Amino acid sequence: MLAILALALMPGGQGPDWFAHADKVRHAAAFLLLWAIGKQARFEPAWCLAVALLAFGIGIECFQALTPTRESSWGDVLADVVGIALGHLVVRTA
């Protein structure tokens, strides 16, 4: 979580991204990974893990709003939710 927080608060890149909405894919992937780690660590019940990760995602956006080089976005929070949901599906079927 600390690594993801650090990456989220670092100054953004100056050049164009790989493709449109690549940042949303990175958000979803990060939160899918956090879900998988949480489940591997036996964080139960699942709804508590989901709420904790959602709170973490919202917290990241709040911190980004306080930085001069980053922007907060509800779209990023939505991408976090997608990552949590995908993580639930992937881990549940694995």
Rank of each mutant, 00 (worst) to 15 (best):
L2R: 05
A3Y: 01
I4H: 02
L5S: 10
A6E: 04
L7T: 06
M10D: 03
P11G: 07
G13A: 12
Q14G: 14
P16H: 03
W18F: 09
W18S: 00
W18Y: 06
F19H: 09
F19Y: 14
F19A: 09
A20W: 15
H21D: 11
K24A: 12
K24C: 03
V25T: 13
V25Y: 08
A30F: 08
F31A: 06
F31L: 11
F31N: 06
F31V: 06
L32C: 15
L33Y: 10
L34F: 02
L34W: 01
G38T: 06
Q40P: 00
A41C: 11
F43C: 09
E44A: 14
P45K: 08
P45D: 11
A46V: 13
A46L: 12
A46F: 02
W47A: 02
C48G: 12
A50K: 01
A50P: 00
A50S: 13
V51M: 11
A52E: 07
A52H: 04
A52F: 09
L53M: 08
L53K: 07
A55G: 15
F56Y: 15
F56H: 09
F56E: 12
G57L: 04
G59K: 14
E61D: 10
F63G: 10
A65D: 13
A65C: 10
T67W: 03
R70D: 01
S72Y: 09
S73A: 12
W74S: 10
L78D: 01
L78M: 13
D80N: 15
V82L: 15
G83C: 12
I84K: 07
A85E: 02
L86F: 08
G87N: 06
G87Y: 04
H88Y: 15
L89V: 12
V90P: 06
V91H: 05
R92I: 02
T93E: 12
T93V: 14
T93W: 15
